[in-house]
């Protein structure tokens, strides 16, 4: 990782010196190794605090919405899984491609500070300490890049990301309801999931809009507690790239990504396999009518 970070820094410095980029979007060293934070670096001096280590799981693509409005180009460090989110944001005209220099960085799989806390990492396998989202790694290929930094990638057969979805589908409606009540009742409405989600990029979120009829800063009752996450899942359906950030940042460890994966599984089943963010300017099946589309009655068949 040390080597990769060095390569990124060197290239970033060069581009900054030549004036091709105005700033760098990367991760800033924290107090500890396990808490780097996404940050903009406006000068070579600021770049001294840049880091790229095992805990740089954060997806930087959403910060480019703000960067698109700034003067000049922003160099962004994009891991393979982040590249899907960036493509999706470009598709939705939320990020201006011309304002971005995409530096594709290799990813060996990122560690989960909760899993590594108090552990001796030399004991056990790296797999045991990986972020959950890395266990279903989409692969080492970047779907968008202006330039690529070579380096080690994750050597791990990805798990079936729909296994848990199928387990939940197999439950009776009551059991499934109880499962989600149990999970969602822990929600403290900190909005971290919404704020981190690259698909949640509305200029004004319905939950902040008093005229939307669903606005609320905090859950007033358990109904709202459930509905917040379900409404959010509907709003990102067909656009969610399954980057897993929602579950990663949840302080209550609610498996929010399962809601999104259920939508993805349904879309795959009804309209054929679809990966949001595979490429820019692709059309989500949910906003792309074709005469061969399933009828609504087909979609309801065999569903509880």
């Amino acid at each position: 990782m040390q080597g990769t970070a060095q390569l990124i820094l060197e290239r970033a410095r060069e581009l900054m010196q030549s004036g091709q980029i105005q700033r760098v979007l990367g991760w800033e060293k924290g107090e500890f190794e396990h808490d780097p934070t996404p940050a903009f670096f406006e000068s070579e001096e600021e770049l001294q605090n840049f880091c790229y280590n095992d805990y740089c799981g954060a997806n930087l693509s959403k910060y480019l919405i703000a960067a698109s409005k700034l003067e000049g180009k922003t160099l962004v460090c994009i891991k393979p899984c982040d590249s899907y989110s960036l493509n999706q944001l470009i598709t939705e005209h939320r990020v201006n491609r011309e304002k971005v220099f995409v530096l594709a960085v290799p990813c060996p799989g990122m560690l989960d500070p909760v899993k590594t806390e108090g552990k001796d990492l030399s004991q056990g396998e790296r797999k045991d300490y990986l972020l959950d989202k890395c266990l279903c790694c989409k692969g080492a290929e970047h779907k968008i890049a202006d330039e690529t930094i070579e380096g080690p990638s994750l050597d791990l057969a990805p798990e079936d990301r729909f296994a848990q979805v199928r387990e939940l589908e197999a439950l009776s409606p009551q059991e499934r309801f109880d499962f989600w009540r149990g999970e969602l009742s822990r929600c403290i409405r900190c909005n971290a999931c919404r704020n981190v989600c690259p698909a949640c990029s509305c200029v004004k979120c319905v939950f902040d809009n008093p005229n939307s009829g669903v606005s609320s800063k905090a859950s007033a009752d358990d109904f709202e507690e459930n509905m917040f996450h379900i409404i959010r899942a509907f709003h990102v359906a067909g656009r969610c790239t399954d980057c897993g950030e929602c579950s990663r940042v949840c302080p209550q460890r609610i498996p929010l990504h399962l809601l999104n994966r259920k939508f993805i599984a349904d879309i795959d089943e009804l309209y054929g396999e679809y990966q949001a963010g595979e490429e820019a300017e692709q059309r989500s099946p949910l906003v792309n009518y074709q005469t061969t589309d399933k009828e609504p009655s087909d979609a309801l068949k065999g569903r509880g």
Partner: peptide, 15 residues
């Protein structure tokens, strides 16, 4: 227009 993201989803879905 104050709420519009310019994301083009509506344009794509409009028959």
């Amino acid at each position: 227009e104050l709420l519009c993201n310019g994301c083009s989803q509506c344009e794509r879905v409009c028959p």
